[in-house]
């Protein structure tokens, strides 16, 4: 552990560069602003306490997502840590979910295809949704997703491949996309994904919606 000033500077840098990303990560995965505020505070508290474990540079962010993810899992199990740390933030985020709903309306435009995509996505198991979202929403590559999930890069490839296949199957079952998404295309795409590690590739390439 370095001297206090070095610790502070390092933490401030991590906080400055990652605060918004972690907040967005949490708002996307919580039902209300209180939960997001509590977990945000907890995440950065862990970062402060375990500063020496936080990876340098761009790797800090997926590490923080991983901490946030575990704190969220605790929250969903009914174990909440509420501290005075997040009181002020709770006030500001009290109605955040309403804003996110509005934002979702705006983005989704509520076309039939989009509604089907949303329904298919919701019907996926949580672990499928998580890998797809980490790529599509947080824009992480496989290596970064591996840091978040605490698994190997190869395991992420496999999970992503399976998630994409299940997603495609759900979409076909819902009759979305006018049959343009054929199972075969996804086999092919899955193979490509096994090779390529492009940032956000899995979510941004399908393109038929």
């Amino acid at each position: 552990m370095g001297p206090p000033d070095t610790r502070r500077h390092r933490f401030e840098e991590i906080y400055r560069t990652s605060h918004d990303a972690v907040l967005a990560y949490l708002l996307r995965r919580t039902e209300n602003g209180h939960d997001a505020a509590d977990v945000l505070a907890e995440t950065f508290l862990v970062a402060w306490r375990r500063l020496d474990d936080v990876p340098d540079g761009d790797r800090a962010r997926p590490w923080l997502f991983g901490v946030a993810r575990r704190a969220l899992a605790n929250l969903h199990r009914g174990a909440r840590r509420r501290t005075a740390l997040s009181d002020r933030l709770r006030g500001e985020l009290a109605h955040a979910h309403r804003h996110t709903e509005r934002a979702a309306d705006r983005h989704a435009e509520r076309t039939a295809d989009q509604a089907a995509v949303a329904a298919a996505f919701r019907s996926l198991p949580e672990q499928d949704r998580e890998v797809l979202a980490l790529a599509g929403w947080e824009g992480l590559d496989f290596g970064e997703i591996a840091v978040v999930l605490g698994c190997s890069r190869n395991a992420v490839r496999i999970r992503m491949y399976r998630a994409r296949r299940r997603f495609a199957r759900e979409l076909s079952a819902l009759g979305a996309l006018g049959g343009r998404e054929k199972e075969g295309e996804h086999e092919e795409e899955g193979e490509r994904l096994k090779e390529g590690d492009g940032r956000a590739a899995p979510a941004s390439k399908g393109g038929a919606a």
Binding site: D20, A108, Q114, A133, F167, A168, G206
Partner: peptide, 23 residues
């Protein structure tokens, strides 16, 4: 098939919810 469009909130929108002081 683009799940990016299902993104409930962008990082910029999230950032705008928290004031500098609270941060």
């Amino acid at each position: 098939m683009n799940i990016e469009r299902l993104n409930p909130i962008t990082e910029e929108e999230a950032a705008a919810m928290v004031s500098r002081q609270t941060r």
